[in-house]
C-alpha cells in the first residue's frame, strides 16, 4: 500500500485560512510536519484545531492558502493526498448497522485494498485492538471505547503513511486509551507520521515530538513540549538537598543563581540557566564534600505552558 516518494515533509500548510460567515476559524496559519514525527495540535475549544484537521484531510476546502500531503495538494489532487492518509475524525462513527468486519471491508474497498490483503489486515488489526471476537457483531452494540478502537482500525486498514487523529482518546476508559496510545507509539516506531489534535496535555506531552498551540485561529506557539515548557518561564526552579543538610548560604552566591532559599532540608534555587547552575551545584557539592540527595528541576508543566500561551502570554522559542 505504501507509495515511495522523497518528500521529507508529510504536511506543509501555507497561509491556510477558513472563515464561517464573519467568523475567522483559521487565520492564515503556516506550519510543516516532518515525516515520521508525532505532531500535536493543541488549543482550547473553538481555537480552530478541528477546522485545521478537516482542511488537511480534504473534508472542507480552505478559503485561502494551501496544504500539501507528501507533496500532493489537498485541493488540486485530493484523491492522491487522501490515499496516503488515515483519518480518525472527532465526531465520526462507524456504520452502526454494519458489523465491525463489514465496516473494515468497506474501508478496504474505498481505499482500493485487494480483498485478501484487506481480510488479513482486518484480522491483525482487530486482534491487536481486542475486537476480533466481536468482529461479526453489529457496531450498534459496541461501547464508546470499542467504537473508537474500530474507527482507528478502519483508519489503519490501508496502512497509511500519515494518520490524522482528532481527540482520539476523549472520554474513553483507561484500557481503551492505553491500547490506542500504545498502538500510536508502535505505528510511529514503524515510520507512520501522526498528526494529533487533543485537549489532553498529558497525552500530548507523552506522545508528541512537537506541538503547536492554537489560539483564536492562529498558531501562538510551536515547538517540542520540553522547549515549550521551558521557554514560557524565563526563571526556572531547581530543588536540591545535601547530606549533611546544614549547608551554609554560600550556595546563593554561586554564578547564575538568582535566589536561593531554604525550605526544610531542601534548597529552592531560581536561575535563568538551568544547565550551568546544575554544573555549579555539583561542583559546590564536590568542593564542600556534600552528598547530593535530591536534585531536580521544577519546570512548568505543559498545562501551564498551554494556559500561559492561550491566555495571551508571550512565547519566544
Amino acid at each position: 500500500m505504501k507509495e515511495a516518494d522523497h518528500h521529507q515533509d508529510a504536511i506543509i500548510a501555507t497561509n491556510l485560512r477558513k472563515t464561517f460567515a464573519d467568523i475567522v476559524a483559521v487565520d492564515s496559519i503556516s506550519f510543516s510536519v516532518k515525516r515520521g514525527e508525532i505532531f500535536g495540535l493543541l488549543g482550547p475549544n473553538g481555537a480552530g484545531k478541528t477546522t485545521t484537521a478537516r482542511m488537511l484531510t480534504g473534508v472542507i476546502s480552505p478559503d485561502g492558502g494551501n496544504a500539501a500531503i507528501f507533496g500532493y495538494d489537498i485541493v488540486h489532487t485530493p484523491i492522491r493526498a487522501k490515499q496516503r492518509c488515515g483519518v480518525v475524525p472527532e465526531t465520526a462513527n462507524a456504520y452502526s448497522d454494519l458489523s465491525a468486519w463489514q465496516n473494515l471491508m468497506l474501508m478496504g474497498e474505498l481505499y482500493g485494498v485487494p480483498k485478501h490483503y484487506a481480510e488479513e489486515r482486518a484480522k491483525t488489526l482487530l486482534g491487536a485492538l481486542g475486537l476480533l471476537e466481536r468482529k461479526d457483531q453489529k457496531v450498534q452494540g459496541f461501547s464508546k471505547g470499542m467504537k473508537q478502537r474500530l474507527i482507528l482500525a478502519m483508519a489503519l486498514l490501508h496502512e497509511p503513511d500519515l494518520l490524522f487523529l482528532d481527540e482520539p482518546t476523549s472520554g474513553l476508559d483507561v484500557q481503551s486509551t492505553q491500547l490506542i496510545t500504545g498502538m500510536l507509539r508502535e505505528l510511529n516506531d514503524g515510520g507512520t507520521t501522526i498528526f494529533l489534535t487533543t485537549h489532553n496535555m498529558e497525552e500530548a506531552n507523552r506522545l508528541c515530538n512537537r506541538v503547536a498551540i492554537m489560539r483564536k485561529g492562529e498558531i501562538a506557539a510551536i515547538d517540542s513540549p520540553e522547549r515549550l515548557k521551558m521557554a514560557i518561564e524565563r526563571l526556572h526552579t531547581i530543588e536540591v538537598s545535601f547530606d549533611p543538610a546544614g549547608t551554609d548560604d554560600k550556595l546563593a552566591s554561586l554564578p547564575g543563581i538568582k535566589s536561593a532559599r531554604r525550605e526544610g532540608d531542601k534548597w529552592m534555587i531560581t536561575t535563568e540557566d538551568v544547565d550551568s547552575t546544575i554544573h555549579a551545584i555539583c561542583a559546590f557539592g564536590v568542593e564542600h564534600q556534600l552528598k547530593i540527595e535530591v536534585l531536580r528541576t521544577l519546570a512548568p508543566t505543559l498545562d501551564e505552558a498551554f494556559l500561559r500561551v492561550t491566555e495571551g502570554g508571550s512565547y519566544e522559542p
Partner: peptide
C-alpha cells in the same frame, strides 16, 4: 456521523 469519514476517503 458517518459522512465525514466517507468524505475523508479517496
Amino acid at each position: 456521523r458517518t459522512l465525514e469519514r466517507l468524505i475523508a476517503c479517496p
